[in-house]
Design a protein around this nucleic acid. Sequence first.
DNA 1: CGGCAGGTTGATTCGCGTCAAAATCCGTGG
DNA 2: CCACGGATTTTGACGCGAATCAACCTGCCG
Lengths: 237, 237
Amino acid sequence: MDNSTVCHNQISQPPPRLCINCDVREQSVCGVLSERELEIFASATHNKRHQTGETVVSQGDPAVFFYNLVTGALRLVKLMPNGRRQIIGFLYPGDFLGLATRDTYPYAAEALGDTVLCQFEKRSFTAFLEQSPEMRAELLERANSELTLAQDQMLLLGRKTPSERLATFLLRLPEKDDGSIQLVMTRQDIADYLGLTIETVSRTFSRFKAEGLLSLPSRATVMILTRPQLQAMVDES
Amino acid sequence: MDNSTVCHNQISQPPPRLCINCDVREQSVCGVLSERELEIFASATHNKRHQTGETVVSQGDPAVFFYNLVTGALRLVKLMPNGRRQIIGFLYPGDFLGLATRDTYPYAAEALGDTVLCQFEKRSFTAFLEQSPEMRAELLERANSELTLAQDQMLLLGRKTPSERLATFLLRLPEKDDGSIQLVMTRQDIADYLGLTIETVSRTFSRFKAEGLLSLPSRATVMILTRPQLQAMVDES
DNA sequence: CGGCAGGTTGATTCGCGTCAAAATCCGTGG
DNA sequence: CCACGGATTTTGACGCGAATCAACCTGCCG
């Protein structure tokens, strides 16, 4: 809640932050830039930290900044006046925050856990695009894959059963080395992403567990036991 | 079903088809091209006609061609193995068909009424993009607005009531001069677009009519009587 | 005047949402 | 290490609203 744009260079003076050392450079839109361009880019950006639940951008606010997500995860939320909530996507390290915006953000972006973002001005980024066809191509690429995902999600929300929705969701998440899946979001988030209630999500998890499809070592950890069966539910689509 | 790539120059020899005379040039992605570029473009395209219900591209087919829609309308359909259907969008004159495709089309495009399309090869178009930053910017622009629309639709499918869905849908359609709205799609199409059944769509239309919100002079014509009330239902989102 | 596709209306069912309570998880402090 | 407390999740009971199933209507074609 207090000033969360903290730098760690409060004590000693570290070397200037360089995009070239960025952990997610290759995964982010910056991956297409030359060293020369990266330097230009670096001078126009700075890091921003957020804690769990904090709002990075608000629905309806003028879109002044764009971001690359460096660490953590975000949820993109659309809120209706009466409180109904729909999550239209989650962002992970390397993802770009700023697609599908015109003058204002049509959704809020909120931090899930502690996050680090790379912030830059929309204005200067747009200007930068004029000189970088590669970057524009990269953005087009990303917009297209977001659009593809969104279309899959429309099918999910319009026509799939709760079980199919949850199975689809789980199989989209990345596995760790030990085969477990870490859920960075709450059940409520999952419900609002899948167009269900929290109770239905919980019940579906329980049923999957009872059927031996998965186990839940902790709230945030899922072990998929019989991937083929879950996959079969998804392929039914 | 027979060869539907008909030219009208079967009798007399008309002047070569020129993009510069295209009715929808300014509305389509071609609007950003210079006369010079238009000529190059023209030589790589040809018109293609389709009748009601015909398939322009099939879900799962290799994406070889892109299209601009010149006349008529298309529905973009995702079909599940068990027959469940979700319409992820409608295209109107000037719209581009080819966003959100990788190697294959992830949806089918089907003609609503008689349509005219401008067809060109994905390969050559992609090559053309290399030399036309304006065109790439235009495509990015369009991908972004499609994405915005898709996100609105996710909210609709995940969280809105049938009445809100239909009201939202109707108010997005263009009015004619006399204030009427022409529905180019069937009730089933509307249902599959809004994530409902045909019966629920029909009942909701009937209720709106009973409440004096609209009248239905014919199956395909809607007269909105009290726009503010419909708008209020939508704003509730 | 059929015939038929598309659309409407009615009766019934059932799955998910709602409301309520219990259980679990997890951080905190004794 | 355990006891406590709040948040989160799970489970249970119930009701409603949209899907389903079925019949009927309407407009339009030959």
